[in-house]
Computed example of a mutant assay.
Amino acid sequence: MYARAMAAITTALLGVAALLLPGSDARAGDVAGEHVAVIGHRGASAYAPENTLASIDKAARLGITWVENDVQRTKDGELVVVHDDSLQRTTDVEQVFPGRSPWKVKDFTAAEIASLDAGSWFGPKYAGTRVPTLRQYMRRVEHNHQKLLLEIKNPELYPGIERQTLKLLANEGWLDRQHLAGRLIVQSFSADSLKIVHDLDPAVTTGFLGTPRVSDLPAYAAFTDGINPSYSSISTGYVAAVHAFTGPHDRPLEVFAWTVNDAPTVRRVVRYGVDGVITNKPDVVRAALQAP
């Protein structure tokens, strides 16, 4: 194991060195954006309230296949799709339940959260939009024939959320061969959470959110299939180093960069050789990738 890891690190560092030589380029074909996935961040969140059914429907209307979401758990154990650990920013919880500051997701029941308006903050058109349960969300993604990058959010607040999420996905038919072959990735900022997911179901594709040191990549490659960093934290050399490692499904680790919303940045990160771009404006990214 040690010898394999050291060989991989050596290969990665040699790849970095080659990419830093004068005249070296990113991976052939990727400058034109070929084979780069476009992932709608919390749906098409520049155009509809984030993490709602309206947002993934908007992504579908834009022709965007991949969407990303965030999963947390209510006081009574329901999995819901919401980004912040507080409901304050994206709902009217402060008006509906004024005495329950700081309005944490984990302190409200599913019924209470379902009563909240999760759209008016974004615009009058979306007044009355609701926070979806993960079950509702999965059924809409399936209806739209979309693919899902599912983030387990704040797992330290929700012991056992990994097992519960996988059970729901299984019940909704998302852990069969067809879905696992290319329609589902589970990601988290928590390496421990991803290890749990991998141990519970090694067939699930996973992605680590962050930018680990190259020397730490062998450890990550044991339980994750990708490294998903902020675009501002990477370079051509770093992406090449990640690609030099093989994940648990015997494929090179992939890199999905976030959150990229303008054409110049799209072109820059694609030249780094990334495999996917996570964005609030998937139409802008797609147009940049298709531009000559």
Rank of each mutant, 00 (worst) to 15 (best):
D25E: 15
A28T: 12
H35Y: 09
A37G: 02
I39P: 11
G40M: 11
H41S: 05
A46G: 10
A46F: 13
A48F: 08
P49R: 03
N51Y: 13
N51G: 05
T52Q: 05
S55E: 08
I56C: 10
T65K: 14
V67T: 13
D70R: 08
Q72C: 05
Q72T: 09
T74I: 01
K75Y: 09
D76Y: 04
E78Y: 01
L79G: 08
V82Y: 15
H83C: 01
D84T: 00
D84E: 10
Q88S: 15
D92K: 01
D92L: 04
V93T: 06
V96N: 06
V96H: 06
P98Q: 07
P98A: 06
G99E: 14
S101K: 15
P102M: 08
W103G: 13
V105L: 06
V105I: 14
K106Y: 14
T109W: 03
I113T: 02
G119E: 00
S120C: 01
G123Y: 00
P124Q: 03
K125G: 13
R135H: 10
Q136H: 12
Q136W: 07
Y137C: 08
M138N: 09
R139T: 04
R140I: 07
E142Q: 13
H143Q: 15
H143R: 15
N144A: 14
Q146F: 10
Q146L: 12
L149F: 08
L150T: 04
E151M: 01
